[in-house]
């Protein structure tokens, strides 16, 4: 041990006075740093801007430095009631966004898993046809079928609930978004990779279809579920078009929608839009998806890359 350290200490300065610069590494890093800046600087600018008062931002544009309005802006963004009816503040919108994001992610995972379970494990007539029909819906996202979807949702009544259709309700907000094939497709591929013997062992162990699903398949899919959850939550959280269309009641507005609402007031011509507040709201809107991705990152990578035997 001692010998080795000694030789290294004496040899290093003689043979290599300095570490050679590897130009290809420099180029790699330059590209990576440029990419990172491209992504991060706008976020930073929004954050910096959120500390300025509306007038400055309106006059001088986005800001790089910080001012003293940070607390006021966030406080206003979160707790000040606004909108046409003064019935919504940042916290309500945050709650609405959470409900949409969670409802969408959970609903999609539950429906997707059950559909995939039916397709993969049961000998159904036309199972392949059913799968391809579900798969085709990937080609028909909500935006394409938005008018008929709107028509249906605003006129539908379910068991006497929603007498005036599902417009202006959480159900109307979430359910139409759930109908798509991504989760079904991913879970189908995953279930196909689960060894056949596991099902047979479970059958001999006396597990029926429901038990097998809950005791074996769901725990086995947990990394997959986590990955799906992240993707779906962020997707649901960022929804804009559909919530704009289906909710007119301001107490159901989501954060993404609320940001626009603040800037909107300028277009209405009445007053200077509260840019600082809008920027603060944008930062607030960004935070939960970022936190979820940060915390579930390792699961996410596992779920998409590793099939866990």
């Amino acid at each position: 041990m001692a010998d080795i350290t000694e030789t290294r200490v004496t040899a290093t300065p003689v043979a290599r006075p300095r570490k050679r610069i590897r130009w290809d590494h420099v180029a790699d890093h330059a590209i990576l740093i440029a990419g990172a800046l491209l992504m991060l600087v706008p976020v930073y600018m929004v954050f910096a801007t959120s500390s300025w008062d509306a007038i400055t931002v309106h006059r001088e544009g986005m800001q790089f430095g910080f001012s003293d309005q940070l607390g006021t802006n966030y406080d206003a963004a979160l707790f000040e009631y606004g909108g046409f009816t003064d019935s919504v503040n940042g916290v309500t919108m945050l709650a609405n966004s959470l409900i949409l994001g969670l409802g969408f992610a959970i609903g999609k995972i539950v429906v997707g898993m059950m559909a995939a379970y039916a397709i993969v494990y049961f000998r159904l007539k036309f199972a392949t046809l059913a799968f391809w029909m579900i798969f085709t819906t990937l080609l028909l996202p909500l935006e394409v079928r938005i008018l008929p979807s709107y028509e249906i949702i605003t006129s539908i009544t379910v068991f006497g609930l929603y007498e005036n259709g599902m417009g202006n309700s959480y159900a109307g907000l979430i359910i139409p978004l759930i109908a798509s094939a991504t989760a079904t497709f991913f879970f189908r591929q995953f279930f196909l990779s689960v060894p056949e013997e596991l099902i047979e062992a479970a059958r001999i162990d006396g597990a029926g279809p429901v038990k097998f699903f809950i005791d074996i398949l769901v725990p086995l899919s947990r990394t997959m579920i986590a990955a799906m959850f992240i993707i779906m939550f962020v997707f649901g959280w960022n929804q804009y078009l559909w919530p704009t269309l289906i909710t007119t009641d301001e107490s159901l507005f989501t954060l993404v929608r609320g940001i626009r609402q603040i800037v909107q007031s300028y277009a209405d011509g009445s007053e200077t839009p509260d840019y600082g507040q809008a920027a603060a709201l944008a930062i607030i809107a960004m935070t939960p998806p970022v936190l979820i991705v940060v915390f579930f990152q390792s699961w996410f990578v596992k779920g998409l890359t590793e099939s866990d035997k």
Binding site: E197, E200, A201, R203, I204, G206, P219, L220, K309
Partner: peptide
């Protein structure tokens, strides 16, 4: 049903439940 035949089976790839 297999569960009611009172049999037990050992598989080539063991077929253990990986999460238990």
């Amino acid at each position: 049903d297999p569960a009611d035949r009172n049999i037990a089976m050992v598989f080539q790839n063991y077929a253990l439940y990986p999460h238990m």
